[in-house]
Computed example of a mutant assay.
Amino acid sequence: MSQLYIGLMSGTSADGVDAILAEIDQSGSFKLLDCLATPYPDRFRDKLLALALSQQISRTSLGELSYQLGEQFSNACLQLLQRNQLSSADICAIGSHGHTIDHAPDSETPYSIQIGNHSLVAERTGVTTVADFRSRDIAAGGQGAPLVPAFHQWLFQQAPDQSAIINIGGISNITALENVDSKGYDCGPGNCLLDSWHQRHSGESYDKDGISARQGAVVQSLLKLCLNDPYFQQPAPKSTGREYFNLDWLEAKLEQIDKIDQVNWQDIGRTLLELTAQCILDCARHEQRRQLYLCGGGYHNSLLVERITALASTHHIDVDSTLSLGLDVDWVEASAFAWLARQTVLSLPGNLPSATGAKGPRVLGAIYPA
């Protein structure tokens, strides 16, 4: 018997809501039925980014942002229902990642905070909503992230041996696929540093196709300094976010580089792109992967894909996209949260301890009944 689920994703790039409608049957077949992307208004995106960077924000503003995000999540779900001529009763559950504003699984009091007013989503849509997926894994001693490796292991069973899924969002992460106990962790920055640097100097939210970065040259001394950061030497399980990889992090590196005034901003952008490509390749080599399948918004940066492919080829690693495995690059993460919602309502584990480091499999998420 097949059931319908909706998955919602608001990623580290904070560019908008990704929403998908999927059919999942008892045999484990996954079918993507519809999808939509709703960009955030510029002012709303700026507020989300400011909150994620721990800038001063009032409790009132925090509550308002969470409510407004819940409204946008709800509207995306209602659009999916309307254009597919479905009622709320046709949907088993909504899986909502929320939007991460702080992630600190390694602190003395570990936590991860996502906003999105999940009660409002359940109320507005009339559909049971599952959210807060990270907290239970963290309570069990895990990182609470990345959560998508369990879905990757479940969905991409047909991938050849020694394959990896590389998701390039604001943060990049890897899933080293195995039949069981796939390994996964955050590689480092994906689009977050590239986007922030480009926006500071151009006013545009991202560098489309790496056009500006193509005008620059890699600053080797800066690249080396960045790659020597302790995060890249840290063993898995590990996860990170904008609270670590941000422009303050970059400025601290720039202060250590001699004659930086002779370098233009496109050179820095080109170096940040190379950093993303290099840290992904380093993880692939560490996991002894022979095939990479890329997904996420970073796949649309043609220069980034060119650099990942070129670096991989020198080590006899092939590069493709998840589309060749049956799922479009833009909808993998939202699809994962539809699947995670299914796991929760069926009381099945949603985490992968080999990826997060949790003590064992756990049923994830909090349920907000319709």
Results as ranks from 00 to 15, higher is better:
residue 1 M to L: 07
residue 2 S to T: 11
residue 3 Q to R: 15
residue 7 G to I: 09
residue 12 T to S: 15
residue 12 T to V: 13
residue 13 S to Q: 07
residue 17 V to I: 14
residue 18 D to I: 09
residue 19 A to C: 14
residue 21 L to T: 03
residue 21 L to N: 02
residue 21 L to Q: 02
residue 22 A to E: 01
residue 23 E to S: 15
residue 23 E to W: 00
residue 29 S to C: 05
residue 32 L to A: 00
residue 34 D to T: 03
residue 34 D to R: 04
residue 35 C to A: 14
residue 35 C to D: 01
residue 40 Y to F: 15
residue 41 P to C: 11
residue 43 R to A: 14
residue 44 F to E: 01
residue 45 R to T: 01
residue 46 D to F: 09
residue 49 L to Q: 06
residue 52 A to I: 01
residue 53 L to F: 04
residue 53 L to D: 07
residue 58 S to V: 08
residue 58 S to R: 02
residue 58 S to F: 06
residue 59 R to C: 10
residue 60 T to K: 12
residue 69 L to Y: 05
residue 80 L to P: 06
residue 88 S to P: 02
residue 88 S to E: 06
residue 90 D to G: 08
residue 91 I to W: 12
residue 94 I to F: 05
residue 94 I to Y: 05
residue 95 G to F: 10
residue 95 G to T: 08
residue 95 G to M: 11
residue 101 I to W: 04
residue 105 P to N: 01
residue 107 S to N: 10
residue 113 I to Y: 11
residue 114 Q to I: 12
residue 115 I to G: 07
residue 115 I to P: 06
residue 116 G to F: 14
residue 116 G to H: 11
residue 117 N to W: 08
residue 119 S to E: 09
residue 121 V to R: 00
residue 122 A to I: 04
residue 127 V to G: 07
residue 132 D to W: 00
residue 140 A to G: 02
residue 146 P to I: 04
residue 151 F to W: 12
residue 158 Q to I: 12
residue 161 D to A: 15
residue 161 D to F: 12
residue 163 S to A: 13
residue 163 S to R: 10
residue 164 A to E: 02
residue 164 A to P: 08
residue 164 A to M: 07
residue 165 I to D: 01
residue 165 I to H: 02
residue 166 I to S: 05
residue 174 I to P: 01
residue 175 T to E: 02
residue 176 A to W: 00
residue 178 E to Y: 05
residue 181 D to V: 00
residue 186 D to P: 00
residue 190 G to M: 10
residue 191 N to F: 12
residue 192 C to A: 14
residue 194 L to R: 10
residue 195 D to L: 12
residue 197 W to C: 10
residue 199 Q to I: 06
residue 207 D to C: 11
residue 215 Q to K: 14
residue 216 G to Q: 10
residue 217 A to N: 13
residue 229 D to S: 13
residue 240 T to N: 03
residue 242 R to I: 14
residue 244 Y to H: 14
residue 244 Y to P: 04
residue 246 N to R: 05
residue 246 N to V: 11
residue 248 D to C: 10
residue 249 W to F: 15
residue 250 L to A: 02
residue 251 E to V: 10
residue 253 K to C: 13
residue 255 E to G: 11
residue 255 E to A: 12
residue 262 Q to H: 12
residue 264 N to I: 13
residue 267 D to S: 12
residue 268 I to D: 01
residue 274 E to M: 15
residue 281 L to R: 05
residue 286 H to K: 12
residue 287 E to H: 15
residue 287 E to T: 07
residue 289 R to E: 10
residue 292 L to G: 09
residue 293 Y to I: 06
residue 295 C to H: 08
residue 296 G to P: 07
residue 299 Y to K: 08
residue 301 N to F: 04
residue 303 L to C: 06
residue 304 L to C: 10
residue 306 E to W: 03
residue 310 A to P: 00
residue 311 L to I: 13
residue 316 H to Y: 11
residue 317 I to A: 01
residue 320 D to F: 15
residue 320 D to H: 14
residue 324 S to E: 09
residue 327 L to F: 07
residue 328 D to A: 15
residue 328 D to G: 13
residue 331 W to P: 00
residue 331 W to H: 04
residue 332 V to C: 14
residue 337 F to G: 00
residue 337 F to E: 04
residue 345 V to P: 05
residue 348 L to S: 09
residue 350 G to C: 08
residue 351 N to F: 05
residue 354 S to M: 03
residue 354 S to K: 01
residue 358 A to W: 03
residue 361 P to Y: 11
residue 364 L to I: 07
residue 365 G to S: 08
residue 365 G to H: 03
residue 366 A to E: 04
residue 368 Y to R: 02
residue 368 Y to G: 01
